[in-house]
Design a protein around this nucleic acid. Structure first.
Length: 483
RNA sequence: GGUCCGUUCGUCUAGGGGUUAGGACACCGCUCUUUCAAGGCGGCAGCACGGGUUCGAAUCCCGUACGGACUACCA
């Protein structure tokens, strides 16, 4: 059997991080087994359609490095199948179902359905379409329905669910699931606007596209029994299903916008690296080994196993994501880091070369979570400090500091070459002579040059800044003191 | 309310009859040190509960509790 999977988002907004993980697992599964992954846009709800959402989802998947293999127009591309372009297919199959007696038309109004639900709720009954008492082909009989069918009264097509019997299906993640037919609602298949519902379109497409494995979120588990019935009604073979555990808010409810960012777009905008986000999200619900956290996409592919996916939901923990991003930032090639950061640096008004940016990155990469932190954490690498951290000053700038600094400054002025090793050597000799520790001298130097109490090694910092700039800042500071 | 699903440190997880229950994030301590990080070392902390099955249960079975999803002419 050839492996074919699909990722089927609906274009109602930005790609959700949960969607990213679903897409990723589908992608990993397909790549691991040499299968095909298709992207399908499920836009059968016209009222929720958001302009540009589909394009955004595709762009976001590309950003994350997740690729799809097939397109309706040309064989090899990423480009998606779009359900709204396949409406004839769903209508045709809906008709087949009706001819087989597996589906029927119903003419109830929204108000009638509401009344029915209210009644059921008050009677503490399960809320389900009441086929016997509502207005439909089955309750009305052939004679009476003929008139309604011929009229222009709005109608929906409903699945005729068997009254009794047991349904069983295997889920690759959860094992066997058992559901009683009596618990299943007569699902609407075709809406009154002629569009199919998710259930019909999904089953028809999965079959027509020869999808072998349906990997999707747990929220679909309850409706899978309806899909089983649909496959059975059509006489089609059911694909293997796997329902992924949900991504959760810290309070364990389904990950939602109210409690933080859910759009991949948001994380991208905040400066998370795609590889870090993908790595993090991959490990929410699955882990290839016991003692590793960092995996490249290829390593994830090589070890992916759908059967090892967890059943329980996973809380999306921002702290761990942040840690993972710092790991990926540290591993970035300096030249790549510089080119990623250059636009932001320019926007901040720093007219620097990418070579210089790469050097600043190397200097400070262990101290940042996001690449763009370089511009704030290391602002003094781009201009003289505009303010001096008072807490650090009061702690490390003593009355005798200036007197201790001047002879050292004279030597720095003369030193050659001006590099970190030379400065270190020179300074080591000086503090030895003076009988003081490094800190006594270097903390004031840090204050004068960076204005801050935290940063990379001062000799490296000075070397990168250069002799002129370093001395200018210190002289300026001491001049200010003298006045 | 009904149906279905789930439950290993605070969080992500490994482990699936015999383990001192392992790793990671976070937190704390020590170390390194010119600052802050990073790094190294160490610490805190967990099998939801109750019954079975078994010589032996975190692991298998059944309940209970708790949590979640679904319950639309949304996906």
């Amino acid at each position: 059997m050839s492996i074919r999977v699909r990722f089927a988002p609906s274009p109602t907004g930005f790609l959700h991080v949960g969607g990213l993980r679903t897409a990723l697992y589908n992608y990993l599964f397909a790549r691991r087994l040499g299968g095909v992954a298709v992207l399908r846009i499920e836009d059968t709800d016209r009222s929720r359609f958001v302009e540009g959402a589909s394009e955004n989802i595709i762009a976001t998947l590309r950003w994350a490095g997740i690729e799809f293999d097939e397109s309706p127009t040309n064989g090899g591309a990423f480009g998606p199948y779009t359900q709204s372009e396949r409406l004839d297919l769903y209508r045709k199959h809906a008709e087949i179902l009706r001819e087989k007696g597996e589906a029927y038309f119903a003419f109830d109004t929204a108000a009638e359905l509401e009344t029915m639900r209210q009644r059921q709720k008050e009677a503490k009954q399960a809320i389900r379409y009441d086929r016997l008492h509502m207005r439909n082909e089955l309750s009305l009989g052939a004679e009476a329905s003929r008139e309604l069918l011929a009229s222009d009264i709005p109608r929906v097509l409903r699945l005729k669910v068997p009254d009794s019997g047991e349904l069983r299906f295997q889920d690759s993640v959860r094992g066997e699931i058992v559901v009683q037919c009596s618990e299943i609602d007569d699902q609407v298949l075709l809406k009154s606007d002629g569009f199919p519902t998710y259930h019909l379109a999904n089953v028809v497409d999965d079959h027509l596209m020869q999808i072998s494995h349906v990997i999707r979120g747990e929220e679909w588990l309850p409706s899978t029994s309806k899909h089983v019935l649909l496959y059975r009604a059509f006489g089609w073979e059911m694909p293997v299903v796997a329902h992924l555990p949900l991504l959760l808010n810290p309070d364990k409810s389904k990950l939602s916008k109210r409690q933080g960012d859910v759009a991949v777009e948001d994380y991208r905008a905040k400066g998370y690296l795609p590889a870090a986000l993908v790595n993090f999200v991959a490990l929410l619900g699955w882990n290839p080994t016991a003692d590793r956290e960092i995996y490249s996409l290829q390593e994830l592919i090589d070890s992916f196993d759908i059967c090892k996916v967890n059943k329980g939901g996973a809380v999306f923990d921002l702290q761990k994501l942040n840690w993972m991003n710092t790991e990926y930032v540290k591993q970035l090639d300096p030249a790549d880091a510089a080119s990623l950061l250059l636009p932001a640096a320019r926007e901040a008004g720093y007219e620097v070369s990418s070579e210089y940016l790469a050097q600043v990155f190397v200097l400070l990469r262990e101290r940042i979570t996001f690449l763009h932190d370089l511009l704030s954490v290391g602002d003094y690498m781009f201009h003289a400090p505009q303010e001096f951290e008072e807490k650090f000053r009061s702690k490390h700038w003593k009355d005798g500091s200036a007197a201790l600094l001047r002879p050292w400054l004279a030597r720095v002025r003369e030193s050659s070459p001006f590099d970190a090793a030379g400065l270190h050597e020179l300074t080591a000799a000086y503090v030895e002579e003076q009988g003081v520790g490094f800190g006594k001298l270097m903390n004031p130097v840090r204050l004068m040059i960076t204005g801050k109490g935290a940063g990379a090694g001062m000799f490296d910092t000075m070397a990168l800044l250069g002799r002129d700039e370093s001395l200018r800042r210190m002289d300026h500071f001491l001049d200010g003191l003298a006045q």
